[in-house]
């Protein structure tokens, strides 16, 4: 195929996919076990381009850690994965279902993708228990009794079962972030997205959150994690990704990533961040 035709095809192929059964895109076999797949994604905020031709696959059970300098588009990328932002071209699928603005399956999709924010974003007017049960009850249609049992179970897993009846502002930052993780887990999600979950925490609380995340990783959860905690990354990551200026610059398994990254920029970034 001539290259310009090829480019045209690449640019518009998502239209072909989206025509198949209400946005349900079929993928070639080699992509089938990719739970998240992004291909040639561009994202604009007005005239500003935040993502350039980003492609990425995450297999079931894989743990991906994304790092990169501020403003490189890390948040934008993972927010596009659960439709908090919408990409402008390219294609993103979760379990083979396309994520886009017009998709009627978006709420259903989001039920399977947990998201943990830098600022926790707990619901301040609800108790911890209510924070955890509101999703299962209102979205999944679980009974109140069952939802509470599930919530207590997950609170146990994040090591704060005794805080169930308090309100979020009565908890420390580390505890709040663990509640936020439990809130996502209560939805029995298949995928967890983390956007700098420890950046807003006091140093002494970082480890309690990371420990929970490590346990989660050990349980086989698919995780995409934006973080600069390199110790954590070394411990859990299957794949490291380095982003800069809206592009994925380096993708490598951790031992190669930390010792011999291909890109000079990545090496520089790592030396700066590890020098701390």
């Amino acid at each position: 195929m001539r290259s310009d035709i090829r480019a045209h095809y690449d640019k518009h192929k998502h239209l072909l996919y989206s025509q198949i059964e209400d946005g349900l895109a079929r993928f070639p076999m080699e992509h089938r076990n990719n739970i998240i797949s992004a291909r040639n994604v561009d994202k604009f905020y007005g005239a500003f381009q935040a993502l350039y031709d980003v492609s990425l696959n995450v297999a079931k059970g894989e743990r991906v850690v994304i790092c990169g300098p501020s403003g490189s588009g890390k948040s934008t990328l993972i927010r596009c994965m659960n439709g908090l932002e919408f990409h402008n071209s390219g294609i993103i699928t979760i379990n083979g279902v396309e994520v886009n603005e017009r998709s009627k399956q978006l709420p259903a999709l989001r039920q399977d993708i947990g998201m943990v924010f830098q600022q926790f974003n707990l619901f301040p007017h609800l108790t911890i228990l209510e924070n955890l049960t509101i999703g299962p009850i209102r979205v999944r249609g679980v009974s109140k009794v069952e939802a509470e049992e599930r919530a207590r179970n997950y609170l146990e897993r994040v090591h704060i079962p005794e805080q169930a009846d308090k309100y979020p502002n009565q908890l420390s930052g580390g505890q709040q972030q663990r509640v936020a993780i439990a809130r996502s887990l209560c939805m029995e999600t298949q995928i967890m997205l983390f956007d700098e979950p420890t950046s807003a925490l006091d140093p002494e609380m970082i480890n309690e959150v990371l420990d929970v995340m490590i346990e989660l990783a050990d349980s086989g959860m698919t995780m995409v994690c934006v973080t600069h905690e390199m110790g954590f990354a070394r411990k859990v990551a299957d794949t490291m990704i380095f982003m800069e200026a809206g592009r994925i610059v380096e993708t490598a398994p951790p031992n190669k990533f930390f010792t011999a990254p291909d890109s000079e920029r990545c090496r520089l970034f790592l030396s700066q961040i590890l020098a701390h």
Binding site: A108, I113, F123
Partner: peptide
């Protein structure tokens, strides 16, 4: 953030 948190649990 409240809207986003609600959205992300599928509400």
């Amino acid at each position: 953030g409240q809207h986003e948190a609600a959205k992300s649990i599928g509400m």
